[in-house]
Each structure stands twice: as C-alpha cells, then as structure tokens.
C-alpha cells in the first residue's frame, strides 16, 4: 500500500480480542491522531461527477 503512494500511518492493522478493551481504545486513539495529523488525502480520491460538473460550470 505504501508502494502505491499511500502515506505510512494512514492504514493500520491490528488484532484485538474482545477482552482487550484498553488495547482497542489505544489503537483507535492512535489511528485517529495519526490520520488527523496526515490531513485529508490528496491523491487516489475519486471526484464525484456532480462536483466535477460544478467545477466545469
């Protein structure tokens, strides 16, 4: 995924048991903070047809 130009930190993998509530919270917090820090994705974003049309108009 990084090879195709997706920033490290935008995609996370984790294995969390249903008994690991604290780990779940930690992971979610980490995911949201790293993704927020990266900001909105600029490439690999599909422009909906309507907005593309509006722009053209």
């Amino acid at each position: 995924m990084e090879y195709m130009g997706i920033e490290p930190g935008r995609i996370h993998f984790s294995w969390i048991s249903s008994a690991e509530a604290t780990k779940f919270v930690d992971v979610v917090n980490e995911v949201t903070s790293t993704v927020k820090a990266l900001g909105p994705r600029k490439s690999f974003v599909k422009t909906p047809l309507t907005t593309a049309k509006n722009k053209a108009a």
Partner: peptide, 15 residues
C-alpha cells in the same frame, strides 16, 4: 528506486 520516493512522488509516478 520507486520505494525510495516520497508518498506524493509515488502517487504521481503511478498516475
């Protein structure tokens, strides 16, 4: 060579 590029450069490369 591609692996050494930055994420933005990679995206541009594949574009």
């Amino acid at each position: 060579r591609i692996e050494r590029l930055s994420p933005a450069e990679k995206a541009e490369f594949f574009d």
